[in-house]
Design a protein around this nucleic acid. Structure first.
Lengths: 201, 201
DNA sequence: AATTCAGTGTAAGCACTGCTCACATGAAGG
DNA sequence: CCTTCATGTGAGCAGTGCTTACACTGAATT
């Protein structure tokens, strides 16, 4: 069912996923899905949970691959992995973020997943501050601001706002990376050493 | 019809606006709306156009009220007026931004309106650069970045992401203003003179 | 081994939706 | 007075979310 729902969403858009269509795709009758998901929202929530797991997997993989221990470099890596995943799976991302389509608060996977990402970012801001790497020390504001930037970039992509900016889909990643990179660099007290850390990979 | 549709959206959510319910609200039969709007999308597009006009009105009013001629101060004013309007009319803003609900490209009011805001911001970045007010000179990237930040803040609000950040609705405006302000200030070559211009109002 | 029974799938059906269409109304203009 | 055209009407079609009475299966209990 979940795979069928994802397939429908991928080709027809997230809002036009119907329980019946997903059931047809899975080769069962129209009532069958309701044995496993009480409501359409529950089905879409299950789809979103699958998406959240993949997103967290992508972020964790990126962090594991990153050599640098510079907290701002790791912060940028999280943000980049985030937007990379959004570019790769825009439909799934839309579902994960759409609180009118799913029950976000009611899902441990979803709220816990979002919480985990936020906590990881928070830890890196704290470490950067404690090691004197930040130009300013109000890390709550900087955390909120960087999240808004990453979310805005991701949203502008999935909401199709990029064409108006003359940014082709093939260049979306590069444009978003450039924005994130320059923003994170602007937070650093010593931009040059951060740039060096970023070169390190 | 448009007023009725807005009323339904305000109290039941934008996605659950139905042509029939709007017709009931307006006291006409179920087929009547289709004399004026060929499809539900057209009706929602008309609602969105109304929203775009109000948004542009709010921004223009704010700029007219602003004494300072400092381009970065005016830039911040645009961004603040933008998020203010989003906080004030979240439902309408969701409709304006939802390209699955409306025909954005097909509406002169909508695409032209968005274009106008972008052009206005662009002009201020150019002026700031030409007057040597920016720390860096790649204004395209800074314009894109600041738009992503403003859009992300607005989206986080209408998508109900703020509670997870411990930001109550009453404080949303203040949090968003703080983020925008500190970001714009970080762009300025001479932050102190910008701060003075911001004090001027 | 027979029986129970929970888990799953089926098909019909309800109330709703977007949208169409044949029809009525009614005002404007020749 | 008659035509025309814009608008509203209400029945109807296909699709939706969801429920429900029914049937089947396979494993556990007696």
């Amino acid at each position: 069912m979940i795979e069928a729902a994802i397939a429908v969403a991928e080709e027809s858009g997230a809002e036009s996923v119907s329980v019946r269509e997903a059931a047809r795709r899975a080769g069962v009758s129209s009532g069958a899905p309701f044995r496993h998901f009480a409501t359409r929202t529950d089905l879409m929530t299950a789809v979103a949970e699958e998406g959240m797991l993949r997103l967290r997997g992508a972020i964790d993989a990126r962090l594991a691959r990153l050599r640098s221990k510079h907290p701002l470099a790791r912060l940028l890596a999280i943000a980049e992995a985030y937007v990379n995943w959004v570019v790769q799976c825009p439909t799934l991302y839309r579902i994960v973020g759409d609180r009118t389509l799913i029950d976000f608060e009611g899902s441990e996977v979803l709220s816990g997943g979002a919480n985990g990402i936020r906590t990881a970012m928070s830890a890196m801001f704290e470490e950067a501050r404690d090691r004197g790497m930040l130009r300013e020390n109000d890390i709550d504001r900087q955390h909120f601001e960087s999240r808004a930037l990453a979310y805005g970039l991701a949203r502008m992509h999935v909401d199709e706002h990029l064409r108006e900016w003359g940014i082709a889909k093939t260049r979306a990643r590069a444009a978003m990376h450039a924005a994130l990179r320059s923003y994170i660099i602007s937070l650093a007290k010593d931009p040059d050493s951060l740039k060096a850390a970023l070169e390190e990979g």
